[in-house]
Design a protein around this nucleic acid. Structure first.
Lengths: 336, 336
DNA sequence: TTGTAGGCGTTATCAC
DNA sequence: GTGATAACGCCTACAA
């Protein structure tokens, strides 16, 4: 099954068949018809390896995401990113390869990722591991087109698609303050995580706008290599006379709910909670969680579209897409 | 950057270099060393397109899974499957391409999946859409090696890796019956879903073993194209004088919890609930959900290993792997 | 509008 | 132990 076969069947040359298939040169209607028929007859599909060898394009893109343990709700978020990217890519005839790196290993060299060791993908969709461009330097050195997703490292000039975490965090914390809370704790994953930093920035600005100074004793980052366990951290926080917690991702929110209920405290009466969600479970917690939702699917989709555009040789129209996030008010933020 | 270049650098022939790299023929230690040095010097990587052209092997496998809407907990399950498969594949030098099909479209022709339209992948990991081999016939006709995951259609002779849903469902329902429940309702996704059928079979056997006949009025399948909404179905079920519900997946369990709490009924006093979980959220529901957990990661991993084995030309040692599932007892199944 | 021919970087066959 | 050389299937000058 090859161009040659089609050429034989139609009595035309390989060249003409090739041009007919790719539309790279005028071909007479009669020839076109014959070729189309033969293609159908033997269900011919061009050999991508051969094509790739000539064009050095694989029409394949890799999505590189952090992988946490199984059963972690962050995974759902990335699944939606993946699905969005896949949808956009398939539309343009690209395939999507998946690769992951360990979220919790410091200074993991991304260029060690197997697929990047091969001459293979045309471009990269990357969720960067940290705030630092240094950590993705080796991957940038591959000289493949890159679009970042979800996290924008400091000093980043690459195209990037992410949620407006700061604005929505500002809103969430304001909601707590406006309903009379005075001691709003902040709980984040890591001070080295761009998204987390944005959320912290929104928190600080909201406090500032309400004339309340940031009290570092009720701000905690659960650094991955932290000495204390997450449960301990939350317990500590609660013992600092707080009346509410803004927790900067869904996994943290989940643990906050757990610890609070273990201490037999009431939400929102004793402690109001606002978190993040990647999943519908937040509506069946006790009480249903007031939470921020991001459009993960759109994030993947938009990023993929930008990458495809770059691969097509165009100047990207937008090098930085900031998607809005939503605050869903349920019962955990206020008893009024 | 090619074998030719390495050949020039070392003064050896392309042939020898190729054999040295692939270990397909004895090469003198001295030559080996020279070659290794040159490879390192120019950071040479074999061109996969060229290699693929000769071998007609892409060292790439596709994972085909159903995709539901964003934010659906089923996605988490498949993310873990994906991650497990990826881990195993990378170990053997394979890359993983992702493709999805719409879960709710009947008779979706899987062979329409873009990646399968190209001459590209060496093998297929597939979560089949239904109970019927007919629905995956077109994909089987591709003549690529296939390993099924999670669901075993009727009359299936392909290698398949799935959880022992029946046994664990038997245990779960027995737990309800042993604690005195008499009217255990069953809620499943679809009678056309192999996993769901297994869970129903476990349910029936448990009832049988306890001398209770299956009452079809308290058995419901939420067929995807069902006229009534899921909420209606659950409400109907509750009105049939039941004292407990076994819901056959996490999405259903979530909705069961929601409806019960909307009706201001108490769990487990009024209605005991056992569900499935893909995620840690089940511990923060009210009350924490007694649930069945599967090892999705292992499922993907094992399936990928079998596929790699087949691709290596071996007879697979096991054509059917049934993984155990766990029942996690929390608070929703019994008040004693 | 069509055809000829060379080459992309491998692997495989055969010969030494 | 080692080397020439012919494919694999496609694209693309260059020619007609």
């Amino acid at each position: 099954m090859s161009l040659k076969k089609i050429a034989e069947m139609t009595g035309l040359s390989i060249t003409t068949v090739s041009h007919a298939i790719n539309g790279t040169r005028p071909v007479s209607a009669a020839s076109k018809k014959k070729i189309a028929e033969s293609i159908k007859a033997i269900n011919f599909k061009p050999n991508l390896a051969a094509r790739m060898m000539k064009t050095s394009r694989s029409k394949t893109v890799v999505l590189i995401i952090p992988a946490t343990e199984p059963n972690n709700s962050t995974n759902c978020f990335f699944f939606d990113v993946l699905n969005g990217a896949k949808t956009a890519l398939e539309k343009h005839g690209y395939s999507l390869i998946i690769s992951t790196y360990p979220e919790n290993v410091l200074n993991f060299d991304l260029s060690l990722i197997p697929i990047l060791q091969r001459i293979w993908v045309d471009g990269i969709l990357l969720v960067p591991p940290s705030n630092s461009m240094e950590d993705i330097k080796s991957i940038i050195n591959s000289n493949l087109p890159i679009v970042l997703i979800d996290r924008k490292p400091k000093g980043c000039t690459l195209p990037v698609v992410y949620s407006d975490s700061k604005t929505i965090s500002y809103k969430a914390v304001s909601l707590l303050l406006d309903s009379g809370r005075k001691r709003v704790a902040f709980l984040g994953v890591s001070s080295n995580n761009p998204t987390c930093c944005d959320r912290y920035a929104g928190y600080c600005e909201a406090l500032y706008a309400h004339g309340i100074p940031v009290d570092k004793t009720i701000v905690r980052f659960y650094e991955n290599n932290h000495a204390s366990s997450l449960t301990e951290i939350i317990n500590e926080l609660i013992e600092h006379n707080i009346d509410s917690i803004f927790s900067a991702n869904s996994m943290l929110a989940l643990n906050v709910l757990k610890v609070i209920s273990e201490r037999n405290l009431k939400i929102p009466e004793d402690i109001a909670v606002i978190g993040f969600e990647n999943l519908d479970w937040t509506q069946v917690t006790n009480p249903p969680l007031t939470a921020i939702v991001q459009d993960a699917n759109a994030m993947g989709y938009r990023a993929a579209e930008i990458l495809v555009d770059i691969l097509a040789g165009n100047q990207p129209k937008e090098s930085c897409v900031v998607l809005p996030a939503k605050l869903i008010k349920r019962k955990s933020h206020s008893n009024t």
